[in-house]
Design a binder for these strands. Structure first.
Lengths: 239, 239
DNA sequence: CGTGTATTGTGGTCGGACCACAAAGATGAG
DNA sequence: CTCATCTTTGTGGTCCGACCACAATACACG
């Protein structure tokens, strides 16, 4: 519960991480800013450049900074704070390492998505333009399975984003990519893919209709059945 | 949407990360296993040891491995897959970097916790022993504000864990720690702390009672009011 | 046989040396 | 004077070699 300042005798890289985190917290660093050059950080904090790099690598993978070589405005380490990639990487690795059972990932996705559609239905303030355009793109019959699945992911992600909650949006994105390979494997197990795709399309339209008409409970129920239905059809259920 | 395999010309550390991820996925590495020594990985993958270390650092912060010096069973890098710390670190940093608005974090916590108590109420299969023991520990009137808040965190976390969903549990833990300092700051703003603590205790008991009697809707409603009530009292609302 | 010392294997850290790259500045031809 | 080219500078990316700290094991010696 507290990996805080406590006894951190060694761990040079943690010094760097802590320094940057406090700079962030105190407003000395905000998105768009450039970090000091690695060599300068190294000298300032009294640690080796390798240690600085280890800390920066962590920040990069977590989606906090973007590094660029060369000179000019795109060089150096820049604060970006785009949680998507970091969350996705974390969840993907945890699933790979069996820290997160697939069933729990799916269940979490389900509960988040139910909240999303319920929220969208209750409050009509949200912009569903991206959702609708994806929806019409999916109506193309010539789509391959992979293309359809990609658009499907985009559809659900657009829904989450429309809710306006960045944490939910990023979580949905992360959860999805962490089980992406399983979803694709499941699709290959579905005998009559065209029928399934047709059903998914219809369910998407029904869902949007429920949201538009403000039927929150219906929307929640539809999205629940939509998701569990797919996983059942793909032989991925076990919860 | 795809930070996948694509063109990764340089990025020596990514080679290491990918190698370990695929080893995980293919079952060549499972929790409890030891990674090859850094120097060996370096030689095997044809990258410098520094690059290996950068990758291992990422894995360590994400909670996938634990490193130990010296010899014997606790030395080297061991797969542990404990998502808690990694998720907490990620969320904390993203909040610090303004990638996640506090309001969104709170809203997400709220929706997760409503799902948790609803699930617990509907399905009596869960073990609430840890929750109950924390609850009784909180009844001690001599607790300081900090101790009370720590137990409160433990209470809500125990609830999430009781749901049996590792993703939800880890997320709750991460969300909580990411806004921990704000919660504590809020507590200091509450004029009559004792009255607030008394109210929180009562609400906890009411909540458990609702769960025990299987009143899911009531439990959801209670937990909603409980959380929003606290944030309102602490002057943290703004959604 | 037992005890204490040397060896080995491991991560942790540092410093230096390159390279690749991109911008800015210096140089020179026209 | 203008513009194109070359050089310099600042930056991350990578590798290498050298130590240190630490823990287990091997081994020598009493």
């Amino acid at each position: 519960m507290a990996d805080d300042v406590a006894q951190a005798p060694a761990r040079a890289w943690r010094v760097v991480l802590d320094k940057i985190e406090t700079d962030l917290l105190e407003g000395r660093l905000t998105p768009g800013d450039r970090l000091a050059p690695e060599r300068e950080l190294s000298a300032t904090l009294g640690v080796g450049r390798s240690s600085v790099r280890e800390a920066l690598r962590v920040l990069e993978v977590m989606g906090l900074i973007k590094t660029g070589t060369g000179s000019g405005p795109t060089s150096g380490a820049i604060i970006i704070a785009t949680p998507r990639g970091g969350l996705a990487a974390l969840l993907r690795l945890q699933v790979a390492a069996q820290g997160f059972p697939i069933a729990d990932v799916v269940a979490t996705r389900l509960l988040l998505e139910q909240w999303v559609v319920g929220t969208l239905a209750v409050d009509g303030e949200h912009d569903l333009a991206a959702v609708r355009s994806t929806l019409t793109a999916m109506d193309d019959d010539a789509l391959s399975t992979e293309e359809f699945l990609a658009l499907d992911a985009q559809f659900h992600l657009a829904l989450a984003d429309a809710s306006g909650n960045a944490v939910v949006g990023a979580s949905m994105a992360g959860l999805r990519t962490s089980i992406e390979s399983y979803v694709q494997a499941g699709a290959r197990r579905i005998p009559d893919w065209d029928a399934t795709a047709t059903r998914l399309r219809r369910e998407h339209h029904d869902l949007i209709r429920a949201i538009d008409s403000g039927e929150a409970d219906l929307a929640r129920s539809l999205v629940h059945d939509h998701i569990t239905g797919y996983y059942a059809a793909a032989g991925l259920t076990r919860d």
